[in-house]
């Protein structure tokens, strides 16, 4: 097994401690995430996904328990917490609402600038990040407020990519985008992961996206970990997932129905491409009744 980059030990976080509204958003989380992993995180609304990921770069301080990044206890020295913010990049839900600079260039440069890099280095990173997210050079001098929603989203993601974090965490990066925009963003994340071999955590409500992009999945439920396994083993437990208010990809459902009807379709089909290949295969063999 590869070395772990993120590790938690009995991690618990309570909101509004000391008031009547006190409530554990995550409870006793023990988790180990390997270096270079592309991990999908799913779970019903309010299961604690956003709370969990905000611990990985020190935005939230555990009520109890520990978080280790690269084997280092994150809160051993609270003054040095910024170091972890650069190591673990976090893209929030609706990140376009954090844009503030006059130009796209300056906004993307905010993160690298905070890292204390030289001007040349910052410039290079900004150019590179904007290219990664597929935005043309000409956009750099525009105001981020005059872009379209999807473009803003990409600028915001570029702002985190430009910090070149070892771990990239994205909280529902595709919420509210059209299908094309969604695929584009997820593809760019996959390409980024493939190129750099760094760790990526992707929170999503779309089982299709998880199936397509994440080889390993963490399922959260009611402030705890429900399952943490390979995507195949997770979607094998369809009925349990459904009880949690989750699901399996549509195409998996179709294939399982087909197999129930007696067609030789394997049950472990999670993406449209797999299904297409399998069905074409089937038709080619003339096995259809």
């Amino acid at each position: 097994m590869a070395e772990s980059i993120l590790r938690t030990e009995n991690l618990t976080y309570k909101y509004s401690t000391g008031t009547v509204f006190e409530k554990a958003a995550i409870q006793d989380i023990n988790l180990e995430i390997e270096k270079g992993q592309f991990l999908g995180i799913i779970g019903h609304t309010g299961s604690g996904k956003s709370t969990l990921i905000q611990h990985f770069n020190g935005l939230l301080k555990p009520s109890s328990g520990k978080v280790y990044v690269d084997g280092e206890d994150m809160w051993a020295n609270p003054k040095a917490i910024r170091k972890f913010r650069f190591k673990v990049g976090l893209v929030f839900q609706y990140p376009e609402y954090q844009l503030f600079e006059e130009t796209v260039y300056k906004d993307v440069a905010f993160g690298p600038g905070n890292m204390g890099l030289s001007e040349g280095e910052v410039r290079e990173r900004v150019h590179h990040a904007l290219k990664l997210v597929g935005l043309p050079e000409s956009i750099q001098e525009k105001s981020p407020f005059e872009l379209s929603g999807g473009q803003k989203r990409r600028v915001a993601i570029a702002g985190v990519l430009a910090m070149e974090p070892e771990v990239l965490i994205l909280d529902e990066p595709t919420a509210g985008l059209d299908p094309h925009g969604r695929d584009m963003i997820l593809d760019l994340i996959r390409d980024y992961h493939a190129q750099r071999k760094n760790t990526v955590l992707l929170v999503s409500h779309s089982m299709e996206d998880i199936a397509k992009y994440a080889p390993k999945v963490l399922v959260m439920s009611k402030a705890g970990i429900f399952a943490y396994d390979d995507v195949k083993n997770i979607f094998d437990r369809a009925s349990e997932l459904e009880r949690l208010g989750l699901s399996v990809p549509q195409v998996t459902k179709i294939c399982r129905k087909l197999s129930e009807l007696g067609y030789p379709v394997p049950p472990d089909i999670y993406t449209v491409e797999q299904a297409r290949d399998c069905l074409l295969d089937l038709l080619g063999k003339g096995a259809a009744r």
């Binding site: 935005l59 910024r82 913010r85 650069f86 929030f92 609402y97 910090m163």
Partner: peptide, 12 residues
């Protein structure tokens, strides 16, 4: 939320 997002980008 905005404070968290900017802190995540290293704002001090």
């Amino acid at each position: 939320k905005i404070m968290s997002a900017q802190k995540a980008r290293g704002a001090d």
